[in-house]
Amino acid sequence: MTNQQQATTQQQILAPAAMSRPFSPAMLWHLLPWVIALIFFFVGDGYHSLGTNILVMILFALSLDLALGYAGIITLGHAAFFGAGAYAAGIFAIHFNADPVLGLLAATAIAGLLGLLTGMLILHTRGETLLMLTLAIAAIFYEIANHARWLTGGDDGLSGIRVTPVFGLFRFDLWGKTAFLYALSVLFIWFIIAALVVRSPFGRSLDGIRQNTKRMRAIGTPVWWRLVAMYSLSAAMAGSAGALTAQSTRLVGLSTLELLTSGIVAVMLVLGGERRLYGAFIGAAIYVVVQDFAGSISPFIWMFVIGFLLIIIVLFFEGGLMGIIDSVVAKLKGKADASGQTGKRT
């Protein structure tokens, strides 16, 4: 990190960008994903389930972005929290209360708590050791769910989940319209939280930790606690995503805890671009849509399409699809207004 960069970081810590930025028409772009989602809600008959799956994966990828992208916690075991959230929501609905919002909160809290506990255990380490430990924790979660058949249904999946209407008003209709709006609202809330967090001094300090841990420690940052806090927040968010999938599908399978699930969400994030909140949006949407459409043209080719896209993006476009968009926007802005804000979005 150059001195200049550090100076900017320091500055931003003192004056978080989001809160001090004056309004500009460019900010309207932030409405785009939500507008698209709402339009989809009205025209996407028959595809609401697909839409809900996309929203769930966006939330999951966003949670990984917090841990992997912003805090630099290398993890291949994030499905542990996704699955934990899904099972928690399912079990809560079956044995305690079928209210979806309560179930979602419970699942989020449980996943966050598990993130806190496991984070405290493993975040002393970095690099490959950390990677291995995240894998190990995901494997432990998987085996627990596989063995506790009386609770989770094991390999047959957890079925019999009932969901009452949201706030007692909006019934989960069969074709997933309510589920879609519900998932969209949850995603929106989490997105606001994530945006505030990454722009807060806390988020900035994690930026510093990712780039130079020793230096951050030298200036007195409680590195371990900051990492644990972010990991736990990320786990809670992944748990929410899991709860959403449990409530919209009304069935939880062991696949929610599988290594493959952790891998897929990492692919989505890399595809869309790390450390750009919207990267998760683009990556997850493209992945799920390509899987769906390439899959219906020929089920045999969709993995090839995704693999090819991923290779091209990783080789040639640092920062994923969002990186491409950013550089195009920066170029256009540079032409239109040389003095305009071209500050890279974080």
Binding site: G46, S49, V252, S255
Partner: peptide, 23 residues
């Protein structure tokens, strides 16, 4: 009409069922 459920994923399976029935 074929749909690929991949490595087994309940939410995908449900989604495909809805698409196949509705669309």
């Amino acid at each position: 009409i074929w749909r690929d459920e991949g490595a087994g994923d309940a939410s995908k399976s449900r989604q495909f069922a809805e698409e196949l029935i509705l669309r």
